[in-house]
Nucleic acid binder design. Structure first.
Length: 473
RNA sequence: GUGGGUAUAGCUCAGCUGGUAGAGCAUCGCGUUGUGGUCGCGAGGGUCGCGGGUUCAAGUCCCGUUACUCACCCCA
């Protein structure tokens, strides 16, 4: 079939979209580095058994094999020899920490921006190949709680820096596994995982159906189901949330040691966030997170007005992910779904780039015999850091201008045309240099200029990422 | 993996109860012979996703298949 069809779930942006993505990546990296996170990159593959430690997600792993191996039918498929593409950056990072523990200094703060792969059904904002940007802090043996406060605040800062390009505000929703687990056990429910999974569906199917599911699937009675729903209904951005939860637990006689410990942590987070990033971090007791390795704070981040898109940045505290049996390296991290975020910024018409190419100046070519004059002008401009290109053909100037216009290139340079500027210098005043004239094709203004001294306005030097004029919906 | 919808030009889509494949936008050319955008005229571009079946005749009806898409599962 000669027809080329896009592969669903493997997003590719046009040049203009890539400029937006690149800007988002630059802002994230810059913010991470401002906070002292060191960048690393891990290999794209891990042994299958490493990846499967995460549990249920195992079915989503893409396994790697060589064509040649398919021709060896008798070959037993040994799981410990098989390689899979990583489906997140947390598991490879845990492996990396164990492998390099002797060479790292703890607490170790790293950021990691890479593609990951998941074999799921793609949907709007859900991909099979996508970019994640992670920050994590791991300690050796223990990890102070204050990092669970710091991590979301770093992200809040990064998202704050993206507001100026037209990204909507975010809400970082926080919960604490100890609170949830302590409460559920306190009221007599043992299937903590199951309850969390049902609670996670609240936004989609509503409290009635979740209540029914708790009874049917998790062995809860009516009273217990009601208590779980009551807990999940609590949210807020100040310490009153803690009081509320404690009161609810007391009324059900469900105050456990675990619950008390979790509440203390959640309170510290909410209070600190209220001071350092007011309005961004919200305690929300229905945030569950499916992954089973979280042990403390859990986070989810939604774009305000785009809640249906799902979380664009999630993570939490884990205590046993990286352990070699002797030493354990607890950590806390957050992961930005860059592809999901960027796809919405682009498809929602929220953000755009001022042009599709880096080029600020198109140097026109009068005739193929004089192309070298145009090349010379371009070389002088480039030496001064002005991105430029030379016209592809010595076509009529109208056509060359059109070439620039299509790509959003703001300036066209006409070599050796000094004196022809529409509103250029005084009549008869010949410029000294090799010169020419440069036209701003947006306004039509054309002036005589010398490539050794002329420069475009700062805002035209490179493509800028800006709020789009007309958001879709 | 489960269930629904869709598939016609580069893009967005028409095409009725079967009868020789269409529009708008985009592209290219000319008017305007070296300074674009407007306007006018014109041109190119399609094995109607793929395979089979029914029929004198299938873009249209039937079956299969693939891809896309939405929901579920799960998740960034």
């Amino acid at each position: 079939m000669a027809r080329i069809a896009p592969l669903s779930g493997f997003p590719e942006w046009l040049p203009q979209g890539r400029i937006v993505e690149q800007h988002v990546l630059d802002v994230l990296r810059h913010t991470f580095e401002l906070h002292g996170f060191a960048g690393i990159e891990t290999r794209a593959v891990e042994p299958l058994e490493q990846l499967l430690r995460k549990g249920e997600t195992s079915k989503e792993v893409y396994v790697l094999s060589r064509l040649q191996e398919l021709d060896e039918p008798g070959r037993p498929e040994r799981e410990d020899k098989q390689l899979g593409l990583h489906f997140d950056l947390t598991v490879p990072f845990a492996r990396y920490v164990l492998e390099n523990a002797g060479k790292l200094s703890f607490p170790f703060k790293r950021y990691q921006i890479q593609k990951v792969w998941r074999g799921e059904r793609p949907q709007d904002g859900r991909f099979r190949e996508f970019t994640q940007a992670d920050i994590d802090v791991v300690g050796s043996g223990d990890l102070p709680y204050h990092y669970e406060v710091e991590i979301p605040l770093v992200m809040a800062e990064a998202f704050g820096a993206l507001r100026e390009i037209g990204m909507p505000p975010v809400r970082i929703l926080v919960n604490n596994r100890k609170v949830a687990e302590g409460f559920y056990r306190g009221i007599g429910l043992e299937d903590v995982e199951g309850v969390l999974r049902q609670i996670d569906k609240l936004d989609k199917i509503g409290p009635e159906k979740v209540g029914a599911l708790l009874v049917d699937e998790c062995g809860a009675d009516e009273e217990q189901a009601k208590a779980c729903l009551a807990l999940a209904a609590i949210s807020g951005s100040d310490a009153s949330v803690i009081t509320e939860v404690r009161a609810l637990a007391e009324s059900h006689g469900a105050v456990t040691e675990l619950l008390t410990a979790g509440l203390a942590e959640l309170e510290a987070l909410v209070v600190a966030a209220g001071e350092r990033a007011p309005g961004v971090v919200v305690a929300d007791l229905k945030i569950a997170r499916g992954l089973d390795y979280y042990t403390g704070s859990v986070y989810e981040t939604v774009l305000v007005g785009h809640e249906q898109l799902g979380s664009v940045c999630s993570g939490g505290r884990y205590d046993t992910l990286a352990s070699d049996g002797k030493n354990t390296y607890p950590g806390v991290g957050l992961s930005v779904g860059v592809s999901r975020l960027v796809s919405r910024l682009l498809s929602g018409g929220l953000v755009t780039a001022t042009r599709a190419v880096p080029t600020a100046v198109l140097v026109a070519v009068s005739a193929e015999e004089t192309r070298r004059d145009s090349d010379a002008v371009a070389a002088v401009l480039r030496a001064r850091g002005i991105p430029c290109e030379v016209a592809p053909a010595a076509a009529k100037f109208g056509k060359q201008i059109k070439y620039a216009d299509r790509r959003g290139i703001p300036f066209v340079w006409f070599p050796g045309e000094a004196g022809h500027g529409a509103d250029g210098g005084a009549p008869g005043a010949e410029p000294a240099g090799p010169a020419g004239s440069v036209k701003d094709i947006r306004s039509g203004d054309q002036v005589d200029a010398d490539p050794a001294t002329w420069e475009p306005p700062a805002e035209d030097l490179r493509p800028r990422v800006v709020p789009a004029a007309s958001p879709v919906r």
